[in-house]
Structures are given as structure tokens and as C-alpha cells.
Design a protein around this nucleic acid. Structure first.
Lengths: 343, 343
DNA sequence: TTGTAGGCGTTATCAT
DNA sequence: ATGATAACGCCTACAA
């Protein structure tokens, strides 16, 4: 092969009898104007010929900028995240960034550990989609002065960081109005854990809106522990417990689609017909929500858009930090399918 | 705050009036034995106090080793990949590696571009799950001498790279035997593109096994273009075309679950009952295959295991390259659910 | 337009 | 046991 191991600028310089400075300049679009046109061509050709691949680790060390963004995702198996990942990655790609996705298994300790690892890699910025209302990852980032955007989550001290969120209050309103308009007068909410933003917000909105509308309601807490939160299993068990304890609501709203699917499964086992006997509404409109049995009526949260918007804000923040932090709400919409019907 | 920007080894050294060498040694588990016990403690304490975070880019530059693995995934929205991603990531995490996942949108050019970007980042190794039987990414890796494992895919020159694959021939046998045992005597295969390993292998296996069993069969090519391959839409259109052209098979095997779901949808629209009129079998057993309507009988491919095994082989290969390249087959199994029944 | 030289943060070699 | 120093590959002020 080539007479070099991995080709460096130095090798090209030697080959063409130039200085490394000239080669470096010729290779970079921002500086090539300082070099003669003919030289640029010579250098470029030679680089291609020798199979030169720049060593970005070295450049990063020198420039104090890696063009790497870190993203912490709580659970890769949760189907809402792939669209968000896509939104993040495809925008950052266009901006010349590479994205490191790490997965925290819904675990605060792991998330913090991952954030530290990312900090060691000198990421230029961080997007946290990991889910807890309070955890130390955020303070760690602030301490390290790493530009930060929270995607689809929030924290108590909202003024310290940028946030991109779906408007869950509005989403819950869409779901409740839908069920009410179908004639349901007793609703139930299968809630996620209060330690996670969506769990808290959706439960609060449900409670408040039912009271506003003078509707009888029950709230079922399905969360045993954090890894179990928002799972099909949580919905399964929640529904079973609710029915066994004599719950009478005819309109159910789950905190997410997976829990709705779990609830539907339990109903099927108990020979309860959906939507004839009970209407069930999900939340998120995850991929596949349209092909389950029955297909899910659900509040559609635009995760890809959330991801892209978060990435967009982060890039801006890296370019020039905003003095005040933004809280960006994205409106969900209702998708009516087969799992809801007249009471 | 601290009086330093980001704390470096040099800062700790100055603080404790030691040399950078001693501090570096004290901080690294492999070299701390060269330093007095008391010093180690002083250094560690000081590092914690100042909030020292090692700069791995610098270490990588010095050590010619980044502890970064790159993984190319063709499509994050394809539900078979999250389990594979999990398998890869969780194993590599335990081995002290960080993983960069990139997505090529089923596009060869993008995959190659991503591989180049990863090479610039000096990844220690690469896992390619991107799907084509022939593309330039592999040769690029070989050229750059980057340790390489193919996950769930293959190439013509199989002896040049490690591969971890599901045994599709065996999987197809399970599916066909299942349908035959249910009394089906005319089978159809909704095939993926021949340019992708699974498309090719599954079609070939289907053809051969039908001939072996003296079964009448049809093959429907659903692939228009690469981004469309293996999608719900491909299955939808394939089924419609097949039925409109008078296809009579009572047992269908799709090249993957998404296509099976698309085919089911078309049947539902045409008032064809599954599995009463036609039995449909999928391939992969993706997450959610158990909750679609009707739930899918499918050949279950253990993607998480494939991912973990690929990662395992890659780490070994990085440690000490094997002279001969391995081809590792993982056996799928059949999961019988509601979409297949007696003819 | 081109070249020289120093430094980004870390670690290994060599000397003490 | 500890310190001085060079080197990893790249970029850029400064000099010519």
C-alpha cells in the first residue's frame, strides 16, 4: 500500500516539498484563499491520492472545539425515541456535527456517568432527553459550562437551561374533550411516575381538566419503579388492578401508548371489548400506534420536530450563548383511530 | 468557581507543587503503583476538589487509541435496530468503549460519508449494519485498516471480514414447514431487494425449499428503490399487485415483519380475512410484532444477541487481530401467533 | 504567497 | 519515587 502508515499533513508536505502550513491551509475551505490556486489543486490531488484522512482529534485539541454533540437517551427500546434521534441527528449532520448518542436505561446514575464520559470527550454541547425532573446531570453540565438543551423534559429551575417540550396540558385537553364529546362521563387516567415530567404534567392536567368539566374521574398510579415506568407491563397491571378493584370509568387515558396497549391487552383477556365497552386513548402516537389491535386513538406528539428544534437551539447556543434561556412548546394534535367510540 | 477554566493536569501539578508526570501517573490505575501512596491520595483529592475532568482527546492523540467504536445503522426508524443497538452499546460500555452510532438512511453514499467521518474521529473499530451486499464502505475500512465486524449483513468477499448473521436459510425452513404443516400447498414470498443480504438469502431459501418440498410458489418483488425497501408500504403495494394479478397462494411469507403488516393491511381493505383466508408469516419478530392486528407469526431473529456478539468479536479483534475472519451464525426460531392458521 | 515554530493536554521515555 | 522533556497531528500568529 502507501509507504506511510496513516497519512498526515506532514506526509503530503514532504511529498510535494511544501510546508505543513501551506498544506493545512490548502486543505481547509476557510483558508485556501491564502494559497495559490495551482498549489491548492496539487495539494488536494496529492491528498486524495495518498488517501489522506484528517485527524480530527488533533484538530479538536488545537481548536478547543470538537464538533461533537452528546445526546443522552433514557431508553433506546422506547419507540418514541427513534424519531427524536432522527430529528436530532439529521439536523446536526447538516451543521457538520457528529452526534454521540448514549443510553441511560432510565437510570439517573448511569445518565450522570454518561454525561461525565461525554464531558471527557469535550463535546461542544449536550442534549438531555433523560427523563427525571431532578437529577445531577444537569448541574454537572452547568458546572462544566457545557451548552445544554433539554428535549422533552424539564427541571425545577427552568430558567437555567433551554427546553423543548410538547404542550401536554393542551394534549390532555384534546383527549378529554374527545372522550367527553363521545359521551363519556367517567374517565380514568393511568398515570406515569411523578418523578418524570410527562408523568407529572399529564396527571395534573387530567385532574384539573376533569374538575373543570365536572367529570367523575379516577387516577391509577402504575409506577412501581423507574425502569418499569411507562411500559406495556405497567398498563397491563394498572388495568387489571383497576378493574379488579371495581373501577367503572368508560373512558381511559393512558400516560403513553405503551401503557394503553397494555391496558387493551388486559381488557382482551377479560373479554372486555375495545372500544365497545371501554374507550382507550393513548399518548405520544409512537411508530406502530396505527397498526396495533385495535389501532390507537392517541395524542400525537411530534418527537422528530422536538429533536430537530432542540438541536437547532443547541447549535445557536454554541454559536453565541443567549443570556436568557428559552422554553419552547410544541403543540400536539389528536389522532382518532379505532380504540375510542361512543359511550 | 475555580480559578481555572477547565482544570488540566498541569493545574493540579501546580497546586500540589508536583510535576505533571507524577500527577498523570497518580491518576491512572495502571501507573499509580509508581507513585507514593500518600501522593496518590493527595492528587486524587485535589483532582476531585478542582473538578478535574481528563481530556480524552489529548490522551487519544498521545496513545493512538480513542476507545471509540463507530456503528453504522441503515435506518433508526426500522424497529429491528434498537435491540441491536442495545446489544452493541451495553457490551461496549462494560469494556470502557464509547459508541458513536450514525445513520445512513439506507443510502450507500451516506454510509460511506459516515464511515469517512468516523475514520477522521480515529475510531478504534467499526460495526457495519448498513445493509448492502456490495458497497464501498467496507473497502474503505479495509483500506484504512480499521478493525471491522459486519452485523446482520454480509458481502461477496466474506473471507475478508468478520460477520455475525442470523441463519436465514434455517429461518425460512421453519416458516415453510410451519405453513406446510398447516396444509398450505401454494406459497408466496414477498421479497426484499436482492442487493441486501436478507432480501437475497430469504428469497433464495424460499425458492429452494419450495422446490425441495414440491410446493407451488410465487415470488413477488416489492422493491422499487432502496429507501422503500422492506417497508410497510412495500408490503402494501406488493400484496395489492399480487392479488390484482390473480395470485392464489394461501400461505404468504414476507421478507420482514413490516412488509407482512403492509400485506395484512391491504387484505383488510379488500375484506380478506387473516388468517382465515390467507396465512401470513413475517420475519424478524421486531418489537411490537406481538401487538399488531392480528399478532404476527414470525421467524424471530435475536437482534440484541447479534449486536452483542458483533461487539464482542470487534473488541477481540482490536485486542489482537485474528488471522482468519469468522462467520458467526445465530439461529432464529419460529414464534407462532395469530396470523397463520390451517388452510 | 509561503515558511517557521509553538502549543493544545496527555503520557512515555529517560534521567535523577 | 519523581521530574524534565518530547511527541502525538493539527493550526495559526508571526516572520519573510
Amino acid at each position: 500500500m502507501s509507504k506511510y502508515g496513516r497519512v498526515r499533513i506532514k506526509d503530503i508536505a514532504k511529498e510535494l516539498d511544501l510546508s505543513t502550513a501551506t498544506v493545512s491551509r490548502a486543505l481547509s475551505p476557510e483558508t485556501e484563499h491564502m494559497v495559490g490556486k495551482d498549489q491548492v489543486k496539487r495539494v488536494r490531488d496529492c491528498a486524495r491520492e495518498l488517501g489522506y484522512i484528517p485527524n480530527l482529534a488533533a484538530a479538536a485539541l488545537r481548536n478547543q472545539k470538537t464538533h461533537v454533540i452528546g445526546v443522552v437517551i433514557p431508553d433506546i427500546l422506547n419507540p418514541v425515541f427513534p424519531p427524536m434521534i432522527k430529528g436530532i441527528q439529521s439536523y446536526l449532520f447538516t451543521q457538520g456535527y457528529i452526534t454521540i448518542f448514549v443510553f441511560s436505561n432510565n437510570n439517573q446514575e448511569e445518565a450522570l456517568e454518561e454525561v461525565r464520559r461525554l464531558a471527557m470527550r469535550n463535546v461542544d454541547g449536550l442534549i438531555l432527553a433523560s427523563a427525571f425532573l431532578e437529577d445531577r446531570s444537569v448541574s454537572e453540565c452547568l458546572l462544566q459550562e457545557i451548552p445544554l438543551v433539554l428535549a422533552n423534559r424539564s427541571i425545577q429551575e427552568g430558567h437555567l437551561v433551554h427546553q423543548v417540550l410538547s404542550d401536554d396540558q393542551h394534549g390532555m385537553e384534546l383527549a378529554i374533550n374527545h372522550l367527553i364529546s363521545l359521551g363519556h362521563r367517567h374517565l380514568a387516567h393511568f398515570a406515569g411516575p411523578d418523578t418524570i415530567l410527562q408523568g407529572l404534567k399529564r396527571r395534573q392536567a387530567f385532574e384539573w381538566l376533569c374538575q373543570q368539566n365536572n367529570i367523575e374521574f379516577d387516577i391509577i398510579n402504575c409506577d412501581q419503579d423507574d425502569t418499569y415506568a411507562f411500559s406495556v407491563d405497567a398498563g397491563r397491571v394498572g388495568a387489571r388492578d383497576y378493574l379488579e378493584s371495581g373501577g367503572k370509568a368508560t373512558g381511559w387515558i393512558a400516560a403513553n401508548d405503551l401503557m394503553a396497549i397494555g391496558a387493551i391487552e388486559t381488557c382482551r383477556k377479560l373479554n372486555i371489548q375495545i372500544p365497545k365497552d371501554i374507550s382507550i386513548c393513548g399518548f405520544n402516537d409512537m411508530p406502530m400506534a396505527d397498526i396495533v389491535n385495535p389501532s390507537l386513538t392517541t395524542v400525537s406528539v411530534p418527537f422528530e420536530e422536538i429533536g430537530e428544534q432542540a438541536a437547532r437551539m443547541l447549535v445557536k447556543e454554541i454559536g453565541s450563548p443567549w443570556p436568557s434561556k428559552q422554553r419552547w412548546l410544541i403543540a400536539p394534535h389528536l389522532v382518532v383511530r379505532e380504540s375510542t367510540a361512543k359511550a
